[in-house]
Every structure is written in C-alpha cells, then in structure tokens.
Simulated scan of single mutants.
Amino acid sequence: MAKNVRTMNCRPDDVFRVLADGWLYPAWVVGASRMRDVDESWPQPGAELHHSVGVWPALLDDTTVVEEWSPPNRMVMRARGWPIGEARVTLRVRAFDGGSMVRIDEEPVEGPATLVPGLITTPLLRWRNSETLHRLAYLAEGRAG
C-alpha cells in the first residue's frame, strides 16, 4: 500500500469542500484528464464520478465510486482505471498546527495491478500521490476562508 502525507495551510473543512465538488476531480487527481458526469448524490456513499483517464487521443472512460464519506476526517473511494484495475483510495484529514495534515493511502484491489509486486507499485503510486496531494493543497488553500 502506498502512503503519502502532506500538511496544508487550510482547515480540514476546506479540504473536504474540494473533495465534495466532483467536477474538480481531474484538477487534483493525477491521471484523471476530464469529467464526463457527476452523480447528483456526490459525495454520498455509492455516488459515482464519470471521468476519463489518459491523454487525448488515448483516453479511457471509467468511474470512481464513494465507499465512505465522513467529513471533515475521512473519505474512501474505489477508483477504476481499467485495463490496469481498481484501487481503494483513502483520504484522512486532521487539524494540525493551525492547518491540516492530509494522508492518502492507495492500494490496488482488483485487476492486473494486484499481480504486480508492491516493491514496484508502491514507489510509483507514492510518486503520483505526492503530486496529487500537491494539487489538492493548491485547491484547498486557494479556497480557504
């Protein structure tokens, strides 16, 4: 499982305001390139984001579904990225030193990615999720207030 942590200069509520806006998903998730639709019930459990992954013209349409929504502390999603597979992504947020500490855990749970040793997948996911948290910080800090 890949784990990343980042401190942000905003409150946990500011982070969850970004997470609650499904249309912002490709602005902070590395690899998501565009949104096609967001369920009206987003971000409630069972709600889906309909996004595309990749770079044009090699785009794949897929979905991400909410498994748990517990603001302002925890969100769990199941992100699909076939043909690679599916991953469980957990975001944990807590108040820290006047701002927030955000942790993201990602673990392949279905498909070919589960067959690749963690020795290979973990460094790649950590590298990607470092940038994901960097982008999330820009959005959350920029909307803080």
Rank of each mutant, 00 (worst) to 15 (best):
W28N: 03
N73R: 14
L136M: 10
D97Y: 09
R135H: 12
I104H: 12
R143E: 14
H50S: 06
W127G: 02
A20R: 02
T90Q: 11
E86Y: 13
R17K: 04
R126D: 10
R128H: 11
G145R: 14
D61K: 14
V116G: 00
M35Y: 05
R36C: 10
G85N: 00
R88I: 13
A144E: 10
N73D: 14
R94T: 06
T122P: 07
M101N: 12
G145Y: 08
C10L: 04
V15R: 06
R135M: 05
Q44H: 11
V116S: 00
L133S: 06
V116K: 01
R88H: 13
R126N: 15
P117T: 13
Y138W: 14
G54L: 01
R36Q: 11
L136P: 09
G98V: 15
S33D: 04
S52M: 10
E68G: 09
R92Q: 13
A27E: 06
G54Q: 01
P83R: 01
G22P: 07
V89S: 03
V65D: 05
V76C: 04
G85E: 00
P117I: 15
D21G: 05
T90W: 13
V66C: 12
L115H: 00
L49S: 07
M101S: 15
D105W: 02
D37A: 10
V66W: 11
R78C: 09
E48W: 08
F96D: 14
G98K: 15
G85W: 00
I104P: 05
M101V: 12
A32C: 11
R80T: 03
Y138S: 09
A32G: 06
A2N: 05
P26T: 08
N4G: 04
Q44C: 06
R128M: 15
A58W: 08
H134D: 15
L133A: 08
P108F: 13
E48L: 08
E131P: 08
P57G: 07
V15H: 04
D37Y: 01
R78N: 09
G46A: 09
N73Y: 11
T122V: 15
P43S: 06
T90M: 11
E107Q: 13
D37Q: 05
N129G: 06
L60Q: 10
E67D: 14
D13T: 08
L19N: 05
M101Q: 15
P71H: 07
R128Y: 09
W69E: 03
T122R: 15
D105Q: 11
S70C: 13
L60V: 13
